[in-house]
């Protein structure tokens, strides 16, 4: 299946994965840090996937330093 990884700006082919969890395992991505989307639909880790699917992986972590200080 075709997987578009938004934050790495790349598209990869993943083969043999039957569930979302296996897709993320193959790509070495922590499920806590991404959302997996198929045709505008959010998928949970146990959702079945097939070779014909096109998935989008979207990062959820944003950063910058948020120190707690007053002026």
């Amino acid at each position: 299946m075709k997987v578009r990884i938004r934050h790495q700006r790349r598209e990869v082919e993943v083969h043999g994965a039957r569930h979302v969890r296996e897709v993320l395992d193959q790509l070495d991505l922590n499920p806590e840090t991404v959302l997996v989307i198929r045709r505008n639909e959010l998928l949970t880790l146990d959702a079945p996937v097939s070779e014909e699917d096109e998935l989008e992986i979207r990062p959820v972590v944003s950063g910058g330093d948020h120190a707690v200080r007053e002026v």
């Binding site: 934050h7 922590n30 840090t33 979207r58 944003s62 950063g63 910058g64 330093d65």
Partner: peptide
């Protein structure tokens, strides 16, 4: 905006979040 602020790449906060997300997993 999906892209991260270009200046936050490598910020310490991101490293700490990564560590916490490993624990959370």
């Amino acid at each position: 905006v999906l892209d991260e602020c270009p200046r936050s790449v490598g910020a310490r906060t991101l490293l700490l979040k990564e560590a916490l997300n490993l624990l959370e997993r």
